[in-house]
Design a protein around this nucleic acid. Sequence first.
DNA 1: GCTCTCGATGTAAGCGCATACACTCGTCGG
DNA 2: CCGACGAGTGTATGCGCTTACATCGAGAGC
Lengths: 412, 412
Amino acid sequence: MPGVPESKSPTVYDVARQAEVSIATVSRVLRRPDKVAAATRERVMAAVQQLGYVPNASARGLAGRRTGVLGLLIPGHDLPTTSDREDARSATGEVAFIDDRDGSAADPFRNRYFEQLVRGAEAAAWREGYALMVAAGRDMGREVVMHDLAGRVDGLAAVSRTVPDELLRTSIGRTPLVLVAGHSTADGDGADGGGEGADRAEGADVTDGTVDGVGPRGAIGTTADAVRVDNRGGMRALVEHVLTVKPPGPVLYLAGPPDSPDAAGRAAGFRDAIGGDGAGGDGGTGRDGTAWTELLGDFTWQGGHDAVAAHLEQDTPAAVIAANDQSALGALAALREGGVDVPGTCVVTGFDGIDESRWSTPALTTVRQPMLDLGVRAVELLLRRIADPGAPATELLLPVDVLLRHSCGPHR
Amino acid sequence: MPGVPESKSPTVYDVARQAEVSIATVSRVLRRPDKVAAATRERVMAAVQQLGYVPNASARGLAGRRTGVLGLLIPGHDLPTTSDREDARSATGEVAFIDDRDGSAADPFRNRYFEQLVRGAEAAAWREGYALMVAAGRDMGREVVMHDLAGRVDGLAAVSRTVPDELLRTSIGRTPLVLVAGHSTADGDGADGGGEGADRAEGADVTDGTVDGVGPRGAIGTTADAVRVDNRGGMRALVEHVLTVKPPGPVLYLAGPPDSPDAAGRAAGFRDAIGGDGAGGDGGTGRDGTAWTELLGDFTWQGGHDAVAAHLEQDTPAAVIAANDQSALGALAALREGGVDVPGTCVVTGFDGIDESRWSTPALTTVRQPMLDLGVRAVELLLRRIADPGAPATELLLPVDVLLRHSCGPHR
DNA sequence: GCTCTCGATGTAAGCGCATACACTCGTCGG
DNA sequence: CCGACGAGTGTATGCGCTTACATCGAGAGC
């Protein structure tokens, strides 16, 4: 290519020569323009433009001892569909016909909330002058991912349980770390089992280096910051609302599996709201006199359906509070089969905000995790930690969004 | 903190000293282990472990003249909800009650396919030893984003129309670039208006530095690689399928707005499939004798509904092929109102694969863009370009997925 | 008129790593 | 027994930038 200076990218030296200044001045113009005389500044800027100079981030990172990059580790696999469908299809290069009559093929990443997380984190990072690097935790080579990532970033936000705590601790080394409570069905959080008061729902910073090990903060828990979602407070708020709008009559709480931290947090929220006696049992009378019963579910449609159907044999509830959407949808079906009008006779609520909840009949009132916010807060926490590595571990408890829909009747 | 070596991160020098070798050997152990004697290698690895050494990516990038990072630029805004809901909410720290009876609040990023794109790109990048950096194009400071990004990555994949072509060209400079056709409703592609043959649908590489300027490749088009989605081929395949399963009777094509490249590509696909005469008009007889009519829609529910409702006054179609899902859903409603059984009397198809299509009654057969694939291919193309900067611009046309659902009856 | 101060700019020393090249020392063919 | 060879390792340089420090002038203060 004769004549065309297709050469290497220009460097500060090239700019300096062009502008007839030293490289230090070039650097100053770019980093702290106020430290340079206006005339000089303009001369340098002109040279930058003219040469199409783009600062080399590696060099900057090396010299400045910071990369200006934050990492976000989300759950994921190794191109799950690539080796199967994708590659096969692409090889033939033909349109694929997919039988989606059961709705299963619609999306390989159902309820894909991570886009929100990424966007929130990216925006927050950018706002503070950082770039965002994303990586998916994979089954194979996790150490490699982590190791690699750790060397590239100034700090790392990891969706909890994406990689084992153990690995986090060893691979990460000195890299600031923030744990992010992930999608509720994919991990545990909200296991706020202790005796904390209602103020935990206020989203205030809770400084604690000694949380009891439950939840996403295991072994590493005591040394890492974390952003969590307030399952308990969300359920409490939801139930309090339901109590004001439901028809007169008993309340049914459709619990989740006992070993799920999510289920535990939500159950605690329910008890907070219903109040009264029976806090330790499976039923009782709430502080406002409302009778309530707790049924054991397993987070599945069938489980919710069967439990409620069985219960209908003996009693008709005025409200079914389910610990998640799937079981709420099952309950909805059972009520329909039992001829119970929803929301006229009985209101129903779910938890999680899965896509299906929006399209059920009636549409399900549910609770959504603030994924965008999670991303934003995680980054904010991370930046705070980077700024002050010595600060005590902080836990942020984010309030949820309650989505009021038809299944709990007219609102307000 | 006395005693605790909370010092800086260890470097190759520390490892070298610990293992009693030179830094070159340490580097070799990490980069090309086969070049080092087994005993030495183990000694070094032990030191690495012991010190918790993590290579500094900036230094590596500087010395190696490559960052090992690819950039992905997706459309987006500046925390759209942050300054409003998020910040307001977080300030109070309380659970937000959102009236979602109309379904509008369910998700700030409806039909958010970008998670797929990111995952595909990330996985493909990782597979080749690269990390992925994502950035959202924002209204403000685009130059800054681009400039910054350009200095950080070895190559950049940009969803087309995320930033102006102009900016791409100037900011990017020498950085390898691949354009990615974005979500169909957000940008244009498939404007394969030229006289290309059916082979364009085969997903083969199409080498052309001289595409007519339509579509995402504007001024910069002739110099950048691109990955596109085959709207035309997708519609053609879909229509061919419909012709084999529909009841006897005429076909209605519900077109999109004339100025949309998407609409143009899909209309062309329809004509490819239906064949016969009338290729230039708004109706005719297909090559298999099927009568067809084209109605002008505008991609909206109402437009689809009204057009079909009006048409029903004079004729009952055996198939309604809509240029997108929204208008297909409108058509579905009009048919229901008109007492036309779907899919018994008339089959219906959409295009785009929006969430609603899955939950309509009957569920809508539609076409989905292979976002995961798009991400994978974009990265592959990018890597190819990085490897051979001098290669002619390549355009990849990806086949779509047809999601067969109840609205087009029993399949096969 | 001379020193002092301070703003503007230049000089030069790394930042941590990869790698070309030099060097050492067995091994092997002759 | 000697030189060529090659595997294994060390030395030294530079990647492009930031920044502490030195330098230089031009007013300000006396």
